[in-house]
Amino acid sequence: MAILILGLIVFIGVHCTRLVAPAWRDAQVARFGEHGWKGLYSVASLVGFVLIVWGYGVARRTPTVLWVPPVGARHLTALLVAIAFVLIVAAYIPGNRIKRAIGHPMLAGVAVWSLGHLLANGTLNAVVLFGAFLVWGAVGAIVWRRRDQLAGVQYPVGTLSGDMRVVIVGLIAWALFAFLLHRWLIGVSPLG
Rank of each mutant, 00 (worst) to 15 (best):
A90V: 11
K99R: 14
R74W: 07
F130N: 12
L129W: 06
A141K: 00
L119G: 10
M106H: 11
L79C: 11
L134I: 11
A91I: 05
P69K: 13
A138G: 12
V68C: 08
G57Y: 03
L80W: 03
N121S: 15
M106L: 14
G95T: 05
L87Q: 04
H117S: 13
A91T: 12
A91N: 13
G57T: 08
G131I: 14
R60N: 08
L87A: 09
G48D: 01
A111Q: 07
L76P: 00
G116M: 08
L119F: 14
I52N: 01
Y56T: 15
G95C: 03
V128Y: 03
G109D: 03
A120W: 01
L129G: 02
P105M: 11
P69M: 12
A132P: 01
F130E: 09
R100C: 10
R145V: 05
I93C: 10
L79V: 15
G137M: 07
A126M: 06
Y92L: 12
W136G: 02
T77G: 11
G72A: 08
H75A: 11
V47L: 09
A59E: 09
A141R: 02
A91M: 08
L76Q: 03
L51T: 01
F49D: 09
G48N: 03
P105D: 05
V110K: 00
A90D: 05
I93G: 05
G57H: 04
N96W: 03
I98E: 02
N121K: 06
V47I: 15
R74N: 13
I88Y: 00
T64S: 09
A108P: 04
A132G: 11
H75G: 10
L119P: 07
L107W: 04
M106D: 13
L119E: 13
N125S: 14
G55I: 00
R145I: 04
I98V: 15
V50C: 11
A90S: 13
L118P: 12
V89N: 00
L66K: 08
V139R: 06
I52P: 00
I142R: 03
A120H: 07
L124P: 04
